[in-house]
């Protein structure tokens, strides 16, 4: 029983990290249709930002989170206004350009921060584990779970309940028409890209204490993030939540029954089959294109 409970929590925990990383991508890919292959590198920048703030200024993790969000959002804003902006009508070129940006960011970090792995400290009060039903649940994982839920709520609020969100939804539905109504669509896109990038940076800052911080750490994340978004259905926030839950618990379950190598392969297989028969993903956002 306690093993089942422990396994359930492991699944939830993997799912929360998946969701955290995919959230920013879901917004950028879902709302703007931009396939941003540099997403993993924004996660990496967030992790390095935290390491930098911690090692240079001795800041604890929690204040770092806020700073890192704005730092990486600023980086995203720069990337959008210097490169991505000019490629909105050329999706294939966007893939190539963002991939190139990703490689440049990796090498820039490697040259400036060094190739060695870095480490980020877990806050003292979150470094232990809490005993629930005889199972030691790492408190930092609980923290990630809670924060992911909070970020999800915040994202939903921004998109559904603010003026910015309303404009964003208008631009997503029909850019020309929205512009006719006086919405500055270029500005909306810039802000969206920055917000999505900031979320990616935040994800990086949060996972840094349980994983290692290295210049190429983003590569795995970007694959996972795209998988979540594609399975969930492009442009659907609820789809992203459900699909990260399914993929997370699926991976954890198979890894426990068999092993991690097979878990990865089988989950990919399931995704391929799903996309074959339901290319639009699990949840489809009903809208006119």
């Amino acid at each position: 029983m306690d093993i089942f409970f422990g396994q359930l929590f492991t699944g939830l925990s993997i799912a929360s990290i998946l969701l955290l990383v995919a959230l920013g991508l879901a917004i950028i890919y879902g709302a703007m249709g931009v396939i941003n292959l540099a997403h993993g590198e924004f996660v990496m920048l967030g992790a390095y930002g935290t390491w930098f703030l911690q090692s240079q200024f001795g800041l604890p993790l929690i204040p770092c989170l806020l700073l890192v969000f704005f730092m990486v959002a600023a980086a995203g804003w720069v990337v959008e206004s210097t490169v991505v902006r000019f490629l909105y009508h050329r999706p294939l070129d966007t893939i190539l350009a963002t991939w190139g940006i990703g490689i440049m960011l990796q090498q820039a970090v490697r040259l400036s921060a060094g190739a060695e792995l870095r480490y980020v400290q877990t806050p003292e009060f979150l470094s232990g584990s809490i005993d629930i039903a005889g199972v030691g649940i790492p408190s930092y994982r609980l923290f990630i779970l809670a924060l992911t839920a909070a970020l999800l709520a915040l994202t939903w609020f921004v998109i559904q309940r603010t003026e910015f969100g309303m404009k964003l939804r208008a631009v997503t539905q029909n850019r020309e028409m929205a512009s006719c109504y006086g919405i500055n669509s270029a500005r909306i896109y810039s802000l969206t890209f920055a917000f999505g990038s900031g979320l990616a940076g935040l994800a990086g800052a949060l996972v840094a204490p349980i994983k290692s911080v290295a210049p190429d750490m983003g590569t795995n994340f970007v694959v996972d993030a795209f998988m979540v978004v594609v399975v969930g259905g492009v442009g659907s926030l609820i789809g992203t939540v459900v699909s990260s839950g399914l993929l997370g618990s699926g991976t954890a379950g198979i890894a426990f029954l068999l092993n991690d190598t097979l878990a990865k392969a089988l989950v990919f297989l399931a995704v391929v089959v799903l996309v074959r028969f339901r290319p639009q993903g699990l949840f489809v956002d009903q809208r006119r294109r």
């Binding site: 422990g6 492991t10 993997i14 954890a252 890894a255 092993n259 991690d260 190598t261 878990a263």
Partner: peptide, 20 residues
């Protein structure tokens, strides 16, 4: 006896097996 993919960074399930 278990092998994880290179670059693997999610050991939750493995740790549960240690526990068991």
């Amino acid at each position: 006896e278990e092998y994880v993919p290179l670059g693997h960074s999610e050991f939750g399930s493995v740790l549960n097996k240690f526990r068991e």
